[in-house]
Simulated assay, not measured.
Amino acid sequence: MINRVLIRLKIVQIIYAYYQNGGKNLDTAEKELFFSLSKAYDLYNYLLLLMVEVTKQANKKLNAAKNKLIPTKEELFPNTKFVENRFIAQLEVNKQLLDFAGNQKKTWENEADFVKSLCEQIMESDIYKEYMASETSSYEEDREVWRKIYKKIIFNNAELDQVLEDQSLYWNDDKEIVDTFVLKTIKRFEEKNGAKQELLPEFKDDEDQDFARRLFRRAILNSDYYRHLISENTKNWDLDRVAFMDVIIMQIALAEVLSFPNIPVSVSLNEYVEIAKLYSTPKSGGFINGTLDGIVNQLKKENKLTKN
């Protein structure tokens, strides 16, 4: 699940914090990097559990209406299509998700008010109303309605963002990327797999872990050389006057460009320009793009840049 976009973001955050804390212990900072990545995987599982919890809340709402002193006919014999959703029933018994919930002791029980609010928001949506009114019923429809709900209601949800931020500072910038993996997971579910449906693994393979470790270490251990290249290509600027975050981003970008021959230069540069737009000043994207482009051209002329 953890991809290189997320790895790059985390490395920028951790290296920035490393220097802010005096740059003393590389091993400790590396452990912090991988702990931070593991927290992103926790968030992925936690958001999958949210869909199950919302369904449980909807069921509680139906039962409460049934138990009213004088329930209406509609309340006595409600439409149970949503609470009996087959995709959610499969997700609820998913072995990997149950293992996560058991090992992490992570539930939504302490966020009952938010879950109730989200449930009401979903039940008031056109997506829900159309689904409940449909005369057809299939596993594919059950799965698709949750893909739509997640994309339209959970994906950009300020209230949820606040709940997650209050729970973990590590999740501040993770949700947007993790959301894409939740949507991918919903789409991958197949009824025939039952409780053994595989969720996305934390890392696709050892290659991405190696990428994270090598990029992190090289960005720091070769920092003097990278900063020399930056200084040479920003002669009209005193390096001390360049935003520190811009220097960090360019330092990591150069580590990637020079250490990973299989990654095209354009891919690396585009990724770090986007990170600059997210983490630095409004003008940083253009400044970093121009500076890195100049350094890359210089390295090519000097035959110091090898790409497959």
Rank of each mutant, 00 (worst) to 15 (best):
I2K: 04
R8M: 04
L9F: 10
K10Y: 09
I14K: 02
L26V: 12
L26P: 02
A29T: 05
A29I: 06
K31E: 15
L33A: 07
F34V: 00
K39F: 05
A40R: 07
A40H: 11
N45G: 01
L50V: 03
T55Q: 12
K56W: 09
A58S: 03
N59S: 15
A64W: 07
K66G: 05
K73P: 01
T80N: 14
N85A: 08
D99Y: 11
A101Y: 02
K105T: 05
K105L: 10
W108N: 08
W108R: 08
W108L: 12
N110A: 13
N110H: 12
D113R: 12
K116Y: 09
C119M: 14
C119K: 09
E124G: 04
I127K: 05
S134H: 12
T136K: 15
E140V: 08
R143Q: 15
R147M: 11
K152H: 11
I154Y: 02
N156V: 11
E159K: 11
L160R: 03
L160S: 06
Q162D: 13
E165H: 09
E165D: 07
E165F: 12
S168Y: 02
L169R: 12
E176F: 12
I177L: 09
D179W: 06
D179V: 03
T180V: 09
V182C: 09
L183S: 06
K184C: 06
F189L: 01
L200I: 10
L200S: 02
P201T: 03
D205Q: 06
Q209C: 07
Q209G: 11
F216N: 01
F216I: 01
S223G: 07
R227V: 09
H228F: 13
H228G: 07
L229R: 01
T234R: 04
K235M: 11
D238I: 11
R241V: 11
D246F: 00
V247E: 00
I249V: 05
I252V: 15
A253Q: 00
E256F: 03
L258W: 04
V265R: 05
S266R: 08
V267W: 06
N270R: 13
Y272Q: 01
K277A: 10
S284A: 15
G285C: 04
G290F: 11
L292N: 02
D293L: 12
I295D: 00
Q298A: 14
L299A: 05
L299C: 02
E302P: 08
E302N: 10
N303W: 07
K304R: 15
